[in-house]
Design a protein around this nucleic acid. Structure first.
Lengths: 212, 212, 212, 212
DNA sequence: TATGAATGAGCTTTCATTCAT
DNA sequence: AATGAATGAAAGCTCATTCAT
């Protein structure tokens, strides 16, 4: 009984998870308005009805997608381990790992971009999303403190400014890839340029925080 | 007859321009899929039928919006005048003016963001948009050359990398404003922080191009 | 041009009127929730889309039906002509004509019944319906005044009470016909009983208003 | 075992009764088509599945509601005790008690009204409902006989006509309350008018049955 | 050049019901 | 006796577009 019951439960969770995975792809691919409930359902092994059964409506499904996407990124950021490095090395490493994360999760960047087009109204509606802790920022804050303590970094640096600078660089490369390519005929995600951009970001960050 | 005809023509142009202006606002506001042909028409002094008469369909209207938006920004960039300054001053000035342009045209940034969500497929379909000259980049290229010539700037700097860095910073501040605020409770467009960010951008750029 | 334009106009009105007629039948037949937009459309010579084009949504269509139904009844009541009769004859005549009106318009009674099940919320939402003049009540008021003036009728009779009594009798006969028949095996609308009920109503009314 | 079984049975009956009570409220409130199986279940302490387990489907549940509602009213009518009064007093008393019953059970009147909108098709489908004895009518029949015997009442009065007249008056006051209020701004159920209407009904009935 | 009326296709959502245990 | 998960069918509604003049 228990086994069967948990089998049922597991199936329900599996169904839910499958819908969420497909929806993530669709919303990231087409945007909130462009995504079709019918198409999400069709790419699922269940029916459209199940989607409403589990998530209520299109918007709630989208919010669930956002929540899971942010949770995934936060979990990834939890694994950042640069405390054993000296501040400068740690700072470069953090920038590079952030760079890697962004490159590895273009769908997440698309979802964030889409959510910005909607003025973050769905995040505002989600208890799970507003005011979420940010591991990367916390790590960064500690590195800056260490660098300031040993005199290598400047005083008065706002961790959030550094985080913004890193994010801007990483996000732009992915988020604006297509217009950039259309206009400058350069693919910012070309693997051949990857190392160059990664180093460039580290350089920028270190130049910004280093004391002169 | 001629007078009346040209009057008609002028009216026609006025109607066209009005539709384009309204459509720009709507597409920037709601995205391509979120914008409604009915609503664009309703906010116009003409009818929906005219919209089809002048632009053919929703997509062509959207492309016309994009074309006009890019043309406007290019025209603005044409007015950049920093050739009389020394390279470092010119570089900072260029960064700051670009910063100002972005801040002054949030709708343009939204349109570009939206177009990226659509993988720039509409730009690709527009002869007027693919391979457009980029005044800002040309100015930047000349400044780098002057700076390199007098030994103040490093060798081997790719103008497009500098342009990307500036764009990333400026675009991110506007494009990701809403999620940033939802998560960090900080408004990147807060007028009180404007000067700080503007200076920060100039610093970053100069540090990057300056020879050590 | 004018002729053609008015032909168009007339067609539009004809379409609107047809939808309204079919909708009246369906709503009266099945109730608000039981009626189906698809079915109303199917019984029309146009499509479902037109129904939304002209009326906006199901509820607005239903309100339009109610408005037209009440307007029709009011128009009918306008034709009441009993002023030339002496008060007692006029009173009986009014009761009988009201009786006839109700019998002739069972759909109207059904619509009113349905609207009462919905607590008259749609009437409340209609500017055209709240606070509508009531010809029958006005006629009744004048008859009572005449009868009181010549001493035949009692003093202190509230016209609205008499109207209520008449309405209750006439409405009940139609509105509760089916449960009455199921329980008492008597059809209150049986033509053979028609004259009996009609006279009974006149008697009741006259007994109520006559001075003793 | 037996104890548990009967406990279970008692629980089962309690569950059944609870569902029925909730369903009565929902059907009376929203009508047959407007009521939602999901909502009835949600307002219950059990699940939707139980509702199907006990009643089969929505229609059978609705019929069970009707049956219980009529049974309750019949039981109430069984308590009518006017045989000890003289015919005229008994007649007025019967009218007044009927008036009170209707006022005390608006949900029953709503259910009857709803059932009439459905042309009593569900009553027809219920063995328990078609051809049910009617205590009030039986009492009324006996009063009329007594009144006729002592010469106070007219000959040839059909008991069912008197019952209809009483019912019409009482039902209308509740059933048509909302449209009446919307159109005449008068609440027929206003407690301040209660006594007036109650007396008016008694007067009407007595005037109708009394010999001249 | 201009336009009010019309529309097919497809959208999101809801409903009563049943399956599998 | 009891139940959580699942569902087919159909509901109300919206969309970009075109017809007819």
């Amino acid at each position: 009984m228990v086994a069967e019951s948990s089998a049922l439960t597991r199936d329900a969770e599996r169904t839910r998870a499958e819908i969420l995975a497909v929806a993530t792809r669709e919303f990231a691919d087409k945007g909130y308005d462009g995504a079709r409930v019918d198409e999400i359902a069709a790419k699922t092994s269940t029916t459209k009805r199940m989607l409403y059964y589990y998530f209520g409506n299109k918007e709630k499904l989208y919010i669930a997608v956002l929540e899971q996407a942010y949770a995934g990124i936060r979990a990834l950021e939890q694994t950042l381990d640069v405390e054993h490095l000296d501040p400068a090395e740690a700072m470069r490493k953090l920038a590079e790992l952030t760079f890697d994360h962004h490159e590895a999760h273009p769908d997440f960047i698309r979802l964030v971009t889409i959510e910005n087009i909607h003025r973050a109204e769905h995040i505002a509606r989600s208890a799970a999303l507003s005011g979420l802790a940010n591991p990367a920022l916390e790590v960064l804050t500690r590195i800056l403190a260490r660098g300031r303590a040993d005199g290598r970094f400047r005083a008065g640096i706002d961790p959030l400014d550094v985080h913004m600078m890193i994010s801007a660089f990483c996000v732009f490369r992915t988020a604006n890839r297509h217009t950039w390519h259309a206009i400058f005929q350069r693919d910012m995600l070309d693997p051949k340029r990857r190392k160059h951009y990664r180093t460039m970001l580290g350089d920028l960050v270190l130049e910004y925080v280093t004391a002169r």
